[in-house]
């Protein structure tokens, strides 16, 4: 759990950084009078077409996520079995945080969000590349030319983020993701045995900062494309 969690933390960081390029693109196009800005497109094209990323790193990411998810349910089942007779009076033990007691709930919401996220971006991309050989932007027709277009990723992202219900789900999910990270970050270092002595306050502060900054910036991406792009 801890090692796969740390791996996913690294993935989230790079995902957020790439997404922030789309915000820079949007700000340059809308406020700085730049006619063309393709930072996001270039990186997205690289990530989507580089063989090492596609056939080397992507399977590792899928495996890491699956291990994290399956282990969570296995651990939950084992932990539930460790107390066959529940307390009659609700357990009022002093715990550190709501997040630490409800990782399965916050993680479940993140899984649900990923379903929507895959439906929005990943599944259409796989379908275009490996099934139909044609891609489309927004509600337009699917063509082979669009699939070959290096600059198709930004307009598709903007199109997806124009629906209020989708932006609301994304932003709500990022709050839950933040709570999941708030406990998960520190917990990973505790489980791997890194937390000790002088590093403990540092890890706690880094965990709180990470759990606020990363989901906040993901929220910024969704809101910028909804309101500005």
């Amino acid at each position: 759990m801890a090692f796969s969690g740390l791996f996913l933390i690294v993935f989230l960081t790079q995902h957020m950084l790439i997404n922030m390029l789309s915000v820079i693109d949007s700000l340059r196009l809308n406020f700085f009078g730049v006619e063309e800005s393709n930072l996001f497109n270039e990186v997205a094209y690289f990530m989507g077409n580089n063989p090492l990323v596609q056939f080397g790193l992507q399977p590792v990411l899928i495996a890491g996520f699956m291990i994290h998810m399956v282990m969570a349910f296995v651990l939950q089942a084992k932990n539930y079995a460790a107390r066959p007779d529940r307390y009659q009076y609700a357990n009022k033990a002093r715990a550190y945080s709501w997040a630490s007691m409800n990782m399965l709930i916050t993680g479940g919401v993140v899984i649900g969000f990923l379903g929507l996220h895959f439906y929005d971006f990943w599944i259409p991309e796989l379908k275009a590349k490996y099934v139909t050989g044609k891609a489309h932007i927004g509600d337009g027709p699917a063509t082979e030319e669009i699939l070959a277009d290096v600059n198709r990723f930004y307009p598709e992202l903007v199109h997806r983020m124009k629906y209020p219900w989708r932006v609301a789900i994304y932003c709500g999910s990022f709050v839950l993701l933040g709570l999941h990270l708030n406990h998960g970050f520190q917990s990973s270092f505790q489980t791997t045995g890194v937390s000790q002595g002088k590093y403990i306050p540092l890890i706690k502060k880094a965990g709180i900062t990470f759990s606020i900054v990363v989901p906040f910036l993901f929220t910024v991406v969704a809101l910028v494309h909804f309101f500005i792009s």
């Binding site: 079995a81 460790a82 107390r83 033990a93 715990a95 550190y96 406990h183």
Partner: peptide
């Protein structure tokens, strides 16, 4: 012995 796994809630140390 059938004890559960630690999920680092910190309740043990607090109690």
């Amino acid at each position: 012995e059938g004890f559960g796994n630690c999920t680092n809630t910190g309740a043990c140390s607090a109690e």
